[in-house]
């Protein structure tokens, strides 16, 4: 079988502080196959976002970060790469790109969208001329259902709505046809209807391009709609993994159960009572039948 797009094995992360090392990730393992959409779900501070940043190589430069374990991108162990070739994996053609929480503040406010778009395209094609860049940008914006791409390209981020900026972000992230898209709580800063709209768009596009996605979220509703498989992370440990439907219908780990029961129901009852016994949340990893790393990576 071919190499998965991303394989993380026993990844550990600690931050060195004055009072000793604080462990953030306690050896997590996950993988994403080509075209697969995998969600990493957990509460704030569980280690979701740092995982994405390690994959991109953005935490390695921090002096206080202690990282061990394996991160493989299409079979290449990233830790063995020189910094320059590692850097070359970000944003370039067939590599990785990322979408962030708040689209409007993730776009540089002093340049129009086209200037930012061209910089992104230049990562894949350094010598790209303005005309080609404009044509590609217009096509990419049309892909995310933007009606007047020319006008949007001339605009600044602060002139566009949040939903519009989110589409621009998605278009930029997919412009260079990445093999892996890291979506860190995409659109959490947007209102729910706009978030659902843009996620559906993203979903269609990644399906079309066969892009692998690591989808990071705390929003279970969004995850259920978007992901093929789910990893649940709690305090730096993967506690449960399985197919989306199976995991949502039949959660096995106490933490997953608590997480699912914490979703407020629109049918009433207010905020549900949550069984809050952190001790049992630390129970060992539960992998659904046929969905453990060992079985999947055979």
């Amino acid at each position: 079988m071919t190499n998965p797009t991303l394989r993380i094995d026993d990844l550990r992360l600690g931050f060195k502080t004055w009072s000793g090392t604080i462990d953030v990730l306690h050896g997590i393992s996950l993988h994403i196959r080509k075209g697969e959409r995998v969600a990493l779900v957990g509460e704030s501070g569980s280690g979701k976002s740092v995982t994405a940043r390690i994959v991109l190589g953005m935490l390695q430069q921090l002096k206080s970060a202690r990282i061990s374990g394996t991160v493989e991108f299409e079979g290449i162990n990233l830790e063995t790469l020189k910094p320059a070739s590692r850097h070359a994996l970000r944003g370039t053609a067939m590599s990785m790109s990322m979408i962030f929480q708040d689209p409007t503040s993730s776009l540089n406010p002093v340049y129009p969208i086209f200037t930012l778009f061209r910089e992104v395209l230049q990562r894949a094609e350094p010598g790209i001329d303005t005309e080609t860049a404009r044509r590609k940008a217009i096509a990419a914006l049309a892909d995310v259902a933007i009606n007047e791409p020319e006008r949007v390209l001339e605009s600044y981020a602060f002139q566009l709505s949040g939903g519009m900026n989110q589409r621009v972000m998605i278009a930029m992230a997919l412009a260079n046809n990445p093999a892996l898209l890291l979506a860190d709580e995409p659109g959490t800063a947007l209102d729910v209807t706009v978030q659902a709209q843009t996620l559906r768009l993203m979903s269609e596009l990644v399906e079309k391009h066969q892009t692998s996605v690591l989808f990071i979220s705390h929003n279970l509703g969004v995850v259920r709609e978007f992901a093929d498989r789910v990893y649940v992370i709690y305090k730096g440990n993967i506690v449960e993994q399985g197919p989306t439907a199976g995991l949502f219908d039949n959660p096995q780990h106490p933490y997953t159960r608590a997480l699912l029961s914490a979703v407020p129901r629109i049918t009433g009852g207010g905020i549900p009572d949550i069984e809050d016994d952190p001790a049992q949340f630390l129970a060992p990893l539960f992998a659904h039948q046929g969905y453990s790393e060992k079985e999947l990576l055979k």
Partner: peptide, 26 residues
């Protein structure tokens, strides 16, 4: 500390370019 710096880093823009166009200009 702004999010657009993180985005520029995620896209692998060169450090000098980030300093000039993403940190200094704004």
């Amino acid at each position: 500390e702004r999010p657009y710096i993180e985005m520029a880093e995620a896209y692998g823009f060169p450090e000098k370019r980030i300093a000039r166009r993403y940190a200094f200009r704004p």
